[in-house]
């Protein structure tokens, strides 16, 4: 069980995240929200960055820390001049059982070449391999499908489901609803830095409506106004 208590993040005077109390059961959780809703800030804060000192983030009753959490960040940066294999060497598996590099047979990252020659998708997959290699109990994936081709998205979905079956808790943020609906046990709607609703697996019908209701109304009004201006 992942418990969040009194979690707040501010940029200057602006509060971008405010979660007084929230609990996530083991499994796969999707976090959705429009730009600026606080998705990346939430994952950063769960990993220990930028949160208020009084915040409590606990996993199975104990404080969550880097030792039991792995984090795939939204931006993929690498030290220049190293190969994919050299990057993965840094991520020492806690047990010999989880050899994430074996998954590369499916992901097809050219590990023996320089990372600087990789495409965006390859870089994302390499970061994912590093995260999996750490074999942590909580896995935070920020926009993991960005830049991935359709085949890799399917592989990633299978990997995430496998992690959940092995008792890991996975939190995924995404702008693309398809992979979230396919993999998540529960999808949480984040609006203006607070969780407003959540949808269970198989009951996500109202998700798009909840996410886009306000936007759709505004879009209709603006587009209609724009069309009228053109006609005139």
């Amino acid at each position: 069980m992942l418990t969040i208590t009194d979690l707040r993040c501010t940029y200057g005077d602006k509060t971008v995240l405010d979660i007084p109390q929230y609990t996530l059961a083991p499994g796969v959780h999707g976090i959705v929200g429009l730009n600026g809703a606080g998705k990346t800030t939430l994952l950063n804060a769960l990993y220990g960055f930028g949160r208020n000192p009084t915040a409590k983030v606990q996993w199975k009753g104990a404080d969550m820390f880097h030792g039991n959490t792995a984090f795939q960040e939204a931006e993929s940066f690498f030290h220049p001049g190293i190969t994919g294999a050299e990057y993965l060497e840094l991520f020492m598996p806690t047990s010999g059982a989880n050899d994430a590099q074996a998954l590369n047979a499916l992901l097809e990252v050219p590990l023996d070449t320089l990372i600087s020659t990789y495409s965006t998708g390859m870089k994302r997959k390499l970061v994912l391999l590093g995260v999996l290699r750490l074999d942590r109990e909580v896995v935070l994936l920020d926009e993991p499908v960005n830049g991935l081709d359709l085949a890799s998205v399917r592989v990633m979905e299978a990997i995430v489901r496998q992690l959940a079956e092995h008792g890991r808790t996975v939190l995924i943020t995404s702008h693309v609803l398809g992979p979230l609906v396919a993999t998540c046990d529960r999808i949480h709607l984040l609006e203006a830095g607070a969780f407003t609703r959540s949808f269970e697996r198989g009951h996500t019908d109202g998700l798009e409506e909840a996410l886009f209701a306000d936007l759709d109304a505004r879009t209709q009004a603006v587009v209609a106004g724009w069309a009228n201006t053109r006609e005139r």
């Binding site: 030290h79 220049p80 001049g81 190293i82 050299e86 990057y87 060497e89 840094l90 320089l114």
Partner: peptide, 12 residues
Amino acid sequence: AHLFEYRSMLQS
């Protein structure tokens, strides 16, 4: 592996 800076140096 943890001294990747020097691998990068060799590359350049």
